[in-house]
Amino acid sequence: MYDLILKGGRVIDPSQNIDETLDVAFADGKVAELAPDIPATGAKAVRDVSGRMVTPGLIDLHTHVYWGGTSLGVDAEMISRRSGTTTFVDAGSAGAGNLPGFRKHVIEPSVPRILAYINISFPGIFGFSKTVMVGECADMRLVHPHECLRAARENLDIVVGVKARIGAKAGGNSGMAPLILAIEVADALGLPVMAHIDTPPPSQREVLQVLRPGDVLTHCFRPFPNAPIRADRSIREEVLAARERGVFFDVGHGYGGFSFDSCRVMMEQGILPDAISSDVHVLCVDGPAHDLLAVMSKFLALGMPLNEVIRATTQNAARALRREELGTLRVGTYGDATVLEMRSGGVEHVDVVGEVLRAEQHLASPGMVIAGAWCPTDDAL
């Protein structure tokens, strides 16, 4: 007896090269069967999703969801209900000093899954708001690799890597030092780093030169300065070299990390993002980023194929996390799925520099499945 069957949806699962009408059954918190017509009598609950898409549960690779414990955190459950996101990856909100609180008070009670990059800075991102902005890596006394390594080792079930935010805003005069230490900790753990870069110094060239295959460059399509493109519309050599050796390119939209202009040039020259993520936090939750679904809709408006948009928020994101049991509907894996539909009606998308992109369609989610259980969204079926 299955716990739940989603019937009649267009199943799009890039991890299995599936794009066809199928039923999806769940049992004991896992994906149990994919087939053209699974008898409804064999399930405790059935949802008719005909005319809609069913994907692996959406993964937002870059978020800030330490709500109540940090000034930039937003409520993952609220964002999940409006976007169909089943897994949130917090990108360094917590460091060694407050990761236990993040775990106990937010991660463990949460319905959607929350994983975390641990911040190389001991207090995590502690001063981030409209009125207070203090970079956590600006004072190297806070950047303590031994404490970061200890806390990560004690929480390897939730820690997926080490985050370093560098640049004039996040790192002040610390330059490359926080990232170099983050890479050293990540190397000891056998995990990747996620590197944030804002305004120079350091330069994007300096950052990319030290990233290893599998490490994540977030804000990969950021605007000037430290944009991936030159004024003549060419892509910088260091960007191409990093891509060639396997550095993972993550969108990380946020409040300052994504430009339509940079994105167009990169896509026109054949470089798609590996992962599409929102970098949702208190300054961008009401725009311009909003949530993962809104950022996915922007990429559709920019001409990225639907199946590649889904790949970038399922299979690829899971690969970046080195947890490929996520981001798939393979039988026996986590019973997470997102139901999507394409809605008509004009929408205006805005990037971080204020450019407006108009589109006639956008994605919405009328429901999702987490651990084999139906979870209604704000647009519930």
Rank of each mutant, 00 (worst) to 15 (best):
G101W: 12
E154M: 09
L208N: 03
K104Q: 12
F128E: 04
I12S: 02
M133D: 13
T199D: 14
D351S: 04
D28T: 09
I38T: 05
T55P: 00
M140N: 03
R264W: 12
L381S: 00
C263H: 04
E355D: 14
A242L: 06
F102Q: 00
S121I: 06
V159I: 15
L99G: 00
L115W: 03
R343A: 13
A91P: 03
R52Q: 15
H196F: 07
R10V: 07
D198C: 12
R222H: 07
G57Q: 02
V251N: 02
R141P: 00
G95I: 06
G69M: 04
I310C: 02
V347P: 00
A373Q: 15
G354Q: 08
R343Q: 11
A182N: 06
C137N: 14
H105S: 08
L326M: 13
L326T: 07
N316I: 07
P201G: 09
D378S: 13
V207A: 03
H146L: 11
M342S: 13
T199I: 14
H62A: 06
G287S: 11
S80L: 10
D60I: 10
A25Q: 06
L156D: 05
T199Y: 09
P109A: 10
H64Q: 06
G167Q: 08
A43C: 05
Y2G: 01
S277H: 08
M267I: 15
S80K: 07
P112W: 04
W67L: 09
N307G: 10
C263A: 15
P123F: 10
A35S: 15
A25H: 01
P200K: 05
P14L: 02
I197Q: 01
H196V: 10
S297L: 03
L181N: 01
E324R: 09
F122E: 12
V24A: 04
F26I: 09
A27D: 05
R10G: 03
T55V: 07
G69D: 05
V46T: 11
D48Y: 10
L208T: 04
K104S: 14
G335I: 07
